[in-house]
Nucleic acid binder design. Structure first.
Length: 298
DNA sequence: AAGAAGGTCAACCGCATAATT
DNA sequence: GAATTATGCGGTTGACCTTCT
């Protein structure tokens, strides 16, 4: 991998941007688009490296950026997505329209992380660290954390499936772009006959700790895809109770110990629901496996 | 009023990886 | 297939601001 020398090696300007620089960058991008960031600084008459210009644009100058205080809903989304995705700020940012990954990262590090820590929850694992929680609440959260781990797997699978959909869609449209190494697209004639490109990924990612039950309900591919699209539905009761200052009771959600206990119960129900949900998907995937696919062992 | 301590956030750095040659 | 280029990402830094003592 090569890396072009940035400011430190070429003597280009570093540090805070001036109003004039911002104006130059804005004017240039408005007229020409950013095109190649490498070539942009010299074209725009800026004494900066392309990387610096890109950062300034994406994190500050872009017109569609929303700035200012995060709403409660945004906070909730960040906490939930962080539990699912970890420090994948750009992935989190895709679920928060008009917010940048940098802004979300800063907000997490300066606000949310501390809030979770204060509440006795490890901000890395989202598991309770034992202090300041009732036993039942801690137990409930622990179960929920396990549930969230599974959800993280699903989100990974979803992202992969989406990438592949894009790849395949592009391939069908253009039939000229080379297949990517990560998501190789078969030639059009060899595209899988299944209407559900999610299925392969589903099969791959089905949680290994869950076992099919006798009561799994058959689903149609369409139903499964619809449910799949709803996978990011927040596990509300868990993340919701993390919101707000624990010392400041909020209307209807979170904060005191009684709510935490209630949250624990809710989490147990949710884990049960998740198990049923996954079992139904497992059933679907197994029943729709092509004959040459080995049966999944769970 | 002044210095210390802590908080915030824009920007940088280095790495990973996709794209190109 | 290897080398190079371009871009994106996450971690970290440091300047500036606010609050505390």
């Amino acid at each position: 991998m090569g890396r072009y020398p940035c400011a430190e090696k070429t003597g280009l300007k570093k540090g805070p941007w001036t109003r004039e620089e911002d104006q130059k960058l804005l004017a240039y991008i408005e007229e020409h688009g950013h095109g190649s960031w490498r070539a942009l600084p010299s074209n725009a008459g800026l004494d900066r490296c392309g990387k610096s210009c890109r950062l300034r644009w994406t994190n500050y100058l872009r017109p569609d950026i929303k700035r200012g205080k995060f709403t409660t809903k945004e906070e909730q989304t960040i906490i939930q997505l962080h539990a699912l995705l970890g420090n994948r700020w750009s992935a989190i940012a895709t679920h928060l329209p008009r917010r940048t990954d940098n802004e979300i990262k800063n907000y997490w590090n300066t606000h949310l992380k501390k809030r979770l820590t204060k509440m006795g929850i490890d901000p890395v694992t989202h598991k309770p660290n034992g202090s300041g929680l009732s036993a039942s609440a801690a137990d409930g959260q622990s179960k929920c954390a396990a549930s969230l781990n599974h959800m993280a797997q699903w989100e990974n699978a979803r992202l992969e499936a989406e990438s592949r959909l894009v790849q395949e869609s592009n391939h069908r449209r253009t039939s000229v772009s080379p297949p990517s190494a990560a998501f190789p697209s078969p030639p059009p004639a060899a595209l899988p006959p299944s209407p559900s490109p999610y299925l392969d990924v589903l099969r791959e990612w089905l949680p290994s700790t869950l076992h099919p039950t006798e009561n799994t309900m058959p689903l149609t591919v369409h139903q499964a895809e619809e449910e799949w699209k709803c996978l990011m539905k927040p596990p509300g009761c868990f993340a919701g109770m993390l919101l707000g200052d624990p010392n400041e009771p909020q209307s209807g959600e979170g904060g005191d110990e009684s709510d935490m206990a209630e949250g624990g119960t809710c989490v147990e129900e949710e884990v049960e629901e998740n198990k049923n949900y996954w079992n139904r998907l497992l059933n679907l995937v197994n029943s729709s496996s092509p004959s040459n696919s080995p049966p999944a062992v769970f």
